[in-house]
């Protein structure tokens, strides 16, 4: 069924993947370098991993980032889902007008104005980062959830309501399970966006709330650091395991679905 495609096209695809992966592989390779010079090979060593594990600043920032990402992702999923449910009847939600610098600046100015007007939030820190990340991720969650909602068969909800279920019950027992994949997508997306954000956090953070990207950025500005290579390697390994595991789970679910479909057809 698949059409003939020229070898040149496959070579192009391979070159494209090489472009995408060589930088990541070079990060991983030089994380095992004995030498402090990141780009000159001086023998195999895991000393930078040991150094990373002793680095209180990086570990503390990583823990803070994970906490902020978890809380803001949960909030973004709840609010984003509500927005998507409300807006499905009114047309597509276009939330992503602003770029990162704009979001960061505008939220900071809001927090400053609010503090002047009624004293809350007092100063900037973890709370303001959580609010900012929730706000910026909720647009993504709303888009993901909305695409799932529009693809959903409305007759199932209507049937439940005809049988006397209240709207809230219909939502929790019918709609929510159906849109669950989008909620999981949205959560992972919001979590990753928060964990990865440097620009917005830099605007709205205060003293004592330094997130992991802010620490990485301040180190990277000073030059290459093998500890950052070690950190990047750990991150790549975690993400790769997650993505591959998810791929295998999908494959199995797909096969199970095809089996079910075959059985249903044979009956």
């Amino acid at each position: 069924m698949s059409r003939r495609t020229s070898p040149a096209l496959w070579a192009w695809l391979a070159a494209g993947f090489a472009f995408l992966y060589i930088p990541i592989l070079s990060l991983v390779f030089f994380s095992f370098n004995q030498s402090k010079l990141v780009t000159v090979w001086g023998g195999f060593s895991t000393r930078w991993y040991a150094a990373l594990m002793r680095n209180e600043q990086i570990l503390g920032a990583a823990w803070l980032s994970v906490k902020i990402a978890a809380i803001s992702a949960v909030l973004a999923v709840i609010l984003g889902t509500l927005v998507a449910v409300c807006l499905t009847r009114f047309g597509p939600f276009r939330g992503r007008v602003k770029t990162e610098v704009l979001t960061g600046l505008s939220l900071l100015l809001l927090f400053v104005a609010m503090e002047q007007a009624f004293g809350w939030p007092a100063g900037r820190g973890t709370l303001t980062i959580i609010i900012a990340h929730t706000t910026f991720a909720l647009a993504y969650v709303a888009v993901v959830v909305q695409s799932r909602l529009t693809g959903m068969d409305p007759s199932i909800e209507e049937a439940a309501m005809d049988l006397g279920a209240r709207p809230a019950k219909v939502f929790f027992l019918i709609t929510l399970p159906i849109i669950m994949p989008a909620l999981v997508s949205g959560f992972l997306l919001a979590f990753t966006l928060s964990l990865d954000d440097l620009v917005i956090s830099s605007f709205v953070s205060g003293p004592g709330s330094t997130t992991l990207p802010m620490v990485i950025y301040s180190k990277v500005r000073l030059g290459l650091s093998p500890e950052i290579n070690a950190l990047a390697t750990l991150l790549v390994v975690v993400v790769a395991i997650g993505v591959i595991a998810a791929g295998l789970v999908l494959k199995q679910a797909d096969q199970a679905r095809q089996r079910d479909a075959k059985m249903a057809a044979s009956k």
């Binding site: 993504y140 888009v143 695409s147 989008a182 997306l189 999908l250 679910a253």
Partner: peptide, 18 residues
Amino acid sequence: MSRLGYLPLGDHLAVSAE
């Protein structure tokens, strides 16, 4: 089609979560 529907990882996980 939504712009972020292109990021399939969450969907992968969610299929098993459903």
